[in-house]
Design a protein around this nucleic acid. Structure first.
Lengths: 172, 172
DNA sequence: GCGATACTTGACTTTTTTGTAAGGATTAGC
DNA sequence: GCTAATCCTTACAAAAAAGTCAAGTATCGC
């Protein structure tokens, strides 16, 4: 499970825009220098964000990019969506079908329900977090904490499973 | 955010082992045929799982693979770890440093706290789910649901942010 | 209008991930 | 001990993702 480079860097770029007063533009070079990325790459990332309607561009001298809406109206989910798509159970099932037309587990896969629940969770969490929350450092509390509570509620896998790495023989 | 092919297919392979009586071996060809993957690929995936001590191999004729521990003692987290590493905030910060030595946001990045919380959540959830839960179809309830509850508790980003895609002009 | 600035976009190169191949090692059964 | 079945491991090829280039087009300031 991983976050792609495009998502991480693209998010940083739009965060850069979220930190300046709403309406101000920032040009590609400034962002690239500050974030330690190439201008070409920042251009591409902003192109994706722009295409999704999250940013606006102002051409010509003194031009640049700015948010299309106030930072409190743009969610992390929208940004991730624009940068590469959010994890959904459907995409997973279609994506990994081995050498068959459809996934061999089509119609009854134990894994599906887990991924789909995890995906739903992430989707909801990401929809709640706006760029404003992020720039204010207020996002973390929005990721619901379930640890303390569920520690008692849910009765499972309590013991650390034996981690004695012991295969057939003493591997080399 | 995505699940890699190696994670998905590797998980399916070990699930295959989890479904037979504990101690029974299954050989690569059987798994490959059933899952619609090539034998060569299944070998590689089992190699990874074996190396991590999650499975045991029996060589020679009539050999095969089996779980190294009962299915209720192997967690989803261990499997994902063996197949490609679990998402952690540390890896993220080290992984995406642009063209600098360290991430430009080192020491104070707003994104870090979000990723790290999300990563913690996933880690806890995946640690709770065992292969037994998965094969019994009991895993879904173990992914804590926070929706109904937090809907009221958390006061944010309530309105669907304006999605009027309107850039500089009528695109193209 | 002209030149400079800066966005736009598709093609291209590099890197990483996926998946295949192949030769070797081990064991069971005869 | 020979043979067939099966795992083991590394190297390689193919595909996808990441990142760069370059030739645009639009706009501003003079």
């Amino acid at each position: 499970m991983k976050i792609t480079a495009q998502e991480e860097y693209g998010l940083r770029c739009i965060m850069h825009l979220a930190r300046v007063p709403f309406g101000d533009t920032v040009n590609v070079r400034q962002i690239a220098e500050y974030e330690g990325l190439s201008s070409a790459y920042v251009e591409k990332l902003l192109y994706l964000l722009n295409r999704a309607g999250l940013t606006e561009s102002v051409r010509g001298a003194q031009g640049g990019y700015r948010l299309a809406h106030p930072a409190e109206q743009i969610t992390l989910r929208q940004v991730l969506e624009a940068l590469g798509g959010v994890l959904t159970a459907d995409t997973l099932c279609n994506q990994f079908s081995g050498d068959r037309e459809v996934c061999v587990h089509h119609g009854g896969c134990e894994l599906h329900s887990v991924w789909s629940f995890v995906a739903d969770y992430l989707s909801v969490v990401f929809s709640r977090i706006t760029l404003k929350h992020l720039s204010d450092g207020e996002a973390r509390p929005l990721v619901p904490s379930l640890f303390a509570r569920s520690e008692q509620t849910i009765p499972l896998a309590e013991r650390e499973p034996a981690q004695t790495v012991q295969t057939t023989m003493e591997g080399r």
